[in-house]
Simulated assay, not measured.
Amino acid sequence: MSDTAPSRRLLILSCSMTKRDGPQYMLARDRYDGPIWRTLRRVDPEEQKARVAFLSAEYGFREARTTIENYDRRMTPEIAAAMKAGGLGTRWPLPKTQRHVMPSGEHPGMHIASMTEHGRKPFVEVCLVGSAFYVDVMQHFLDLFQEDGFVTGSAPVTEICAPIGIMRRQMTIWLNRSLQDASGDAGAGVWG
């Protein structure tokens, strides 16, 4: 497997306010229905071009093939700060009470570890897509992923934080670029 194989590329998207109705639990990549997620399903329906994760105010960082319920929670400065302070071990959703019991939820560390075979196959290219709050938290997690060996230190990182139409277009270019330029002729960019 080459370093540019789709399984070695990581695309992290912000969640979407628009969500599909359906069963109580659906894959996140199917539940989220905003323009970025519809573009992803059209351009890379089977994750052949990159592995996909998401960042959500409700669920934190998770793989996009994780099942989630429908919810309504927006990212706030306070939630973003709590995610950054909690690092890779804080479970999301946060507990609703302060009781001293094992917290429910899942943490970012378990998802990134699973996606990289516990660091044996670290990501070598990353793209972050979302609004400023989300990209800020994504970048923080990316730094931690690199420290722990889940993303190589030399991985090119593309950040896309712009109006929705531009984000859709730039994400499509990023998804399609690496497969066409697997020889390494093209580099990553920073857009926004």
Score class of each variant (00 low, 15 high):
A5V: 11
A113I: 00
A82P: 03
T116V: 10
T158Q: 08
H100F: 05
G22K: 09
S16N: 08
E63F: 08
S183A: 13
R74V: 05
E63C: 00
S104N: 10
G105T: 05
P45C: 13
T67I: 05
S16H: 12
T67P: 07
I173L: 10
D148M: 01
G189N: 03
P6H: 14
Q48C: 04
E106I: 12
T116L: 02
F141N: 05
I12Q: 00
I173S: 11
A186W: 06
M110L: 14
M75R: 09
I112N: 02
R31E: 08
Y71V: 09
A188D: 09
Y71H: 15
I112L: 07
D44K: 02
F150H: 15
P163H: 12
A82R: 14
A186R: 13
H107A: 14
V126S: 01
E69V: 03
R8K: 15
M110H: 03
F141K: 03
R9V: 10
Q48T: 14
R169A: 10
H100M: 13
F145H: 04
A132R: 14
A186M: 07
E47I: 01
Q98T: 12
R20H: 07
T4H: 15
S14I: 02
V129H: 00
F133S: 06
L11Q: 08
W37R: 00
T66M: 06
L142H: 09
A162D: 12
C161I: 07
Y32A: 09
L128F: 13
M102I: 11
V151K: 05
L88W: 04
E58R: 15
V52M: 07
T172V: 05
D181F: 13
D33N: 11
L179W: 01
